[in-house]
């Protein structure tokens, strides 16, 4: 390390000022001009987060949003060299530091998660198609996806209304291979089980039926089969199911 302590101190002071906005004496630095660094650095981070979380931004008050962004930038050491990944660190910071309780907005963590996962599924690296035997009846799902279990249905209702509907909510978020668009599907626990099974190992509908029947105690196989056919038909229409169904 060639840098002298005084040089490191100057660099640290300038960076610290940019993160906190708290004025401090820095050698040969004009207070009037250095304000532009704080403005530029902070607005870059703030704009990035506002682009990533438009629904959260709209739901929170201006003061609440500004407090989150200020606290995050001041207290959190941003780790990713890619600014587009910063919103994930923001979501984790807000969740870990329990701002949902501070603001009395219990659905906050769920909303941030849903907004981030939409970005994550949209941008995640392309995955290989599942290597399975090319049998027409095997149920192949799009490989870029996330399954979420939420306490509040923030994917259906606005933040305030969602908070009145606490429960077990499941969402299937996937990327359409043809359009590259991201879609959300509100699903049941049974659907989650089905999707998890298929992502473990692509199966046929005939393979699936006895497994689901056993786990969920559903003995009316005809009704179960019709239900799943409807579900898969919907997935096919929406671009989540890549294979054809009988």
């Amino acid at each position: 390390m060639y840098l002298n302590k005084s040089t490191i101190d100057i660099q640290t002071q300038l960076a610290s000022y940019c993160r906190t906005g708290q004025e401090q004496e820095i050698e040969k630095v004009s207070q009037e001009r250095v304000k532009h660094y704080r403005r530029l650095v902070f607005s870059n981070v703030k704009n990035t987060l506002e682009t990533a979380y438009p629904i959260t931004l709209e739901w929170l008050s201006d003061d609440e949003w500004l407090k989150l962004v200020n606290d995050f930038f001041e207290m959190h050491d941003a780790q990713s060299p890619k600014i587009w990944e910063l919103p994930k660190e923001f979501m984790e910071f807000v969740t870990q530091n329990k701002y949902a309780a501070t603001f009395n907005k219990p659905a906050l963590n769920n909303l941030l998660l849903v907004e981030w996962v939409e970005i994550e599924v949209h941008t995640m690296m392309d995955k290989e198609w599942p290597a399975v035997e090319a049998r027409g009846e095997v149920l192949l799902l799009t490989p870029e996806y996330q399954l979420l279990h939420l306490d509040y249905p923030v994917h259906i209702f606005n933040g305030d209304d969602a908070q009145d509907k606490k429960g077990d909510w499941f969402i299937y978020i996937f990327r359409n291979r043809e359009t590259d668009g991201v879609q959300f599907l509100n699903i049941s626990a049974l659907h989650v089980f089905v999707l998890e099974k298929l992502y473990e190992t692509p199966l046929t509908l005939d393979d699936l039926l006895p497994i689901i029947s056993a786990v969920f105690g559903l003995n009316d196989m005809k009704t179960l089969q019709n239900h799943l056919k409807t579900f898969f038909s919907d997935l096919r229409k929406k671009g989540a199911l890549l294979s054809k169904i009988a």
Partner: peptide, 18 residues
């Protein structure tokens, strides 16, 4: 700085050690 990205370009002190 101090293990945190700031995502903007800050000026380095014009010094020999730098």
């Amino acid at each position: 700085s101090k293990n945190a990205h700031l995502y903007d370009l800050l000026p380095v002190p014009f010094r020999d050690d730098a």
